[in-house]
Simulated assay, not measured.
Amino acid sequence: MIVELPDLDASQALAHRIAADLRSGDVVALTGGLGAGKTTLARAIIASLGHDGEVPSPSFAIIEVYDPPSVRLPLVHADFYRLEHPSEADEIGLDDYRQGAALLAEWPENAGGFAHEPGCLSITLESTENGRRAIVRAGMDWLGRGSWT
């Protein structure tokens, strides 16, 4: 599915759709070049889940955790840009963070990728002449929710 994102309102609308269908165990894998809008979309998803505070970029911390009541479900926001090998995701305890939580993963390919997981919603963000475009691929677990076919 391709979703045109001509402005911030369109990105926020996509984030709201994702947040409405997001469940514990899911992964939203955000790919795209530097400045493609991965963190902007992740922040909008976190806000759509109910968080009403600052959402720092996890670029340096690698992982930021959000727990209820700040959000409607436990959430891990990770930025794997600085990982040099997928084994480093294991070293930082990613599996422990993911227990009972949803994961927003920027630069997922640096952590070995998540597209093989049935609960993965893969989103590739591209810049276009009219803003941005999201190319969305839904894992099997997403197909019965909303309109992710």
Rank of each mutant, 00 (worst) to 15 (best):
A105P: 05
G144A: 13
V28C: 15
E129D: 14
L104R: 00
T124A: 15
D90S: 15
P108E: 15
R137P: 01
L94E: 11
A138E: 01
E117S: 03
E88I: 04
G144K: 05
L41Y: 04
M140R: 00
L143V: 03
E126C: 00
A20E: 13
T149E: 14
F80D: 14
L94G: 15
R43K: 15
H85L: 15
I62A: 07
A78G: 13
R98P: 13
T124L: 14
H77Y: 13
A134V: 00
H16T: 12
H116M: 04
Y81V: 08
A20I: 04
S147A: 05
M140I: 00
R23M: 07
F114S: 08
I92N: 08
T40Y: 07
P69S: 09
P68C: 04
I92P: 13
I46N: 11
E129R: 02
L5Y: 02
G112V: 13
R82T: 12
L41N: 10
R98E: 14
T31F: 08
P6E: 05
E64L: 08
D141P: 02
H85Y: 15
D26S: 14
Q99D: 09
E88P: 06
G112E: 07
L8F: 02
G119I: 08
E4R: 14
R132P: 04
I63Q: 09
A15W: 01
G146I: 01
R23G: 07
R137C: 00
F114D: 01
F114A: 03
T40E: 15
G146T: 00
S59A: 11
A134D: 02
A47R: 11
R17L: 08
A44P: 03
A42R: 06
V136M: 02
Q12V: 03
Y97W: 09
A13Y: 06
C120W: 05
G113Q: 12
H85A: 15
I2L: 06
P74F: 03
W142S: 04
S59H: 05
D21K: 13
D9C: 04
C120P: 09
S147F: 01
V55E: 03
L73D: 15
V27L: 08
D26Q: 14
V71E: 10
R23H: 12
A61Q: 02
W107G: 08
I2P: 06
V71Q: 03
P69K: 05
G37Q: 00
D7A: 04
R17H: 03
S48M: 04
D9E: 06
W148Q: 15
H85S: 15
I123R: 05
S147M: 09
H116I: 01
Y97L: 11
P74H: 07
R17P: 13
A10Q: 01
I92Y: 09
S48N: 05
R98Y: 09
R23T: 11
D67E: 14
S59E: 11
T39C: 02
D141Q: 04
H77R: 14
I46L: 10
G32S: 08
D21Q: 14
I135S: 02
I62F: 06
Y97P: 14
A138F: 00
L5E: 07
R72T: 05
I46V: 12
G144R: 08
L94K: 02
E64S: 12
P69T: 04
I46P: 10
H16W: 01
H85D: 15
A101Y: 10
T124G: 09
